[in-house]
Computed example of a mutant assay.
Amino acid sequence: MTLSLGLVGFGKIARDQHLPAIVATDGMTLSAVASRNASAPGIAHYQDLDAMLAAEPTLDAIILCQPPQVRFDAARTAILAGKHVFLEKPPGATLSEVEALVALAADKRVTLYASWHSRHASCVAQAKAWVAERSVRRVEIVWKEDVRHWHPGQAWIWEPGGFGVFDPGINALSILTEILPDPVRLIDAMLETPVNRQAPIAARLAMATSGGAPISAEFDWRQTGPQSWDISVETDDGTLCLGHGGNSLSIDGKALPPSPEGEYRSLYAHFGALVTAGQSDVDMAPLRLVADAFLRGRNCPTDTFED
């Protein structure tokens, strides 16, 4: 069976990651794109999801790549139309709206997939297997990048529900909650928010495993030069370091051979398997930690930020 896909929101991530992954995945074809500002050559184009659903009734699934603030309404519309739904990360602007989508998808018997692409980075599964056989003593996350490079002129990320620095930071939290065998809880947070913005540009989190191992995370969107996407896990039997967003791995300073990168191809393969099995996959652990950071965090105003 070939799944006919409609993609909503055709920005940089959709063009650079989703489109080539769909093309490379057996059993899937991109039949339509809905976007106010962009189109894909040779693919049917519509201004919005409603128009796409009306004109393309045979679509099997909808891929949602718009900002999180508007994703709930689109997902609900697609589910009510009987379509399977693939959510780009984060799956929504709030926990409650994602929970509502889970219930609706179950009621309509369609697949709902909350994708976490960083969990599919080339070294994450290997790291998870290594950590599972050891006792974790401490975890340190340093996740710093240049917002002007990755999100130039994207005003939505600075608005409520846009996540600010947690837009990339949640990638680190998705890896963290994947590789650790124990649940993670947030203890404290400090959020630096520019005085002219509504979402943080930097954050420091203090967390712990259920067994009490401390976890620190430092997120910053003001990094220039080399970018930092690193997670270090100290155990009773050595220290593991995941670098390059989960695409490099070393243990006690010894680098392990890298595996081929293919995050989004892996996401689509998993989505196809879920649809075939009639299942959903919606893990909210990374989003819950972000929500806890906003609930528990101390807001510290910082300098004005302009793109």
Rank of each mutant, 00 (worst) to 15 (best):
P226R: 00
I231H: 11
G225H: 08
T209S: 10
A217F: 06
S210W: 07
G225L: 00
L173R: 10
T193D: 09
V184E: 05
A199N: 06
A199K: 05
R204C: 04
D220T: 02
S174G: 14
A206N: 13
R197M: 12
S174N: 07
P183V: 13
T224A: 00
D230I: 11
I231G: 10
Q227F: 08
W221C: 12
Q227I: 01
I170T: 12
L205W: 09
A203V: 08
A203W: 06
G212Q: 02
R185G: 03
R197G: 05
V184G: 00
V195N: 05
T193S: 01
L180M: 10
D230L: 13
S228C: 05
N171P: 00
S232P: 02
S228M: 08
P168I: 10
W221A: 15
G211Y: 06
A206C: 04
M190C: 12
V184I: 14
E192P: 10
D182S: 14
Q227G: 08
P200F: 07
D167R: 13
A203M: 06
S232L: 10
S232Y: 03
P226S: 07
A206V: 02
I187K: 14
S174C: 09
L180Q: 09
P214K: 00
W229L: 14
E192T: 02
L191C: 09
D182E: 15
A213M: 08
I175K: 11
A202N: 05
P226M: 03
D188I: 09
R204A: 15
R197E: 10
S210T: 12
N196H: 05
S174F: 02
W229C: 01
D230N: 14
T224C: 05
R197K: 15
A217C: 15
A206W: 14
D230C: 12
P214Y: 05
T209R: 03
Q223A: 14
F166M: 13
S228A: 02
D167A: 15
I231Q: 01
N171D: 15
T177P: 01
A199H: 11
S210N: 02
R185N: 04
R185C: 08
P181H: 06
M190A: 15
D230M: 11
I187F: 01
N196K: 02
G211R: 11
I201S: 15
V195C: 07
I179T: 09
A172H: 05
I215M: 10
W229I: 00
G211P: 03
P194K: 09
I201D: 04
D167W: 11
I215A: 01
I179K: 02
D188V: 03
E178F: 10
I187P: 03
S174L: 05
A217P: 01
L180C: 12
V184K: 08
Q198Y: 08
I179C: 00
S216F: 00
W229E: 07
A172E: 08
R222G: 09
L186M: 13
T209F: 08
A203N: 11
G225V: 07
T193P: 05
R185S: 15
P214F: 03
I231W: 11
V195S: 09
A203Q: 07
L180N: 04
I175P: 04
A199P: 01
I179P: 00
L173C: 10
A202Y: 13
F219Y: 11
S228K: 09
P183Q: 10
P181Y: 01
N196Y: 03
I215N: 02
I179F: 04
G169C: 09
T209V: 01
I231R: 01
V195W: 11
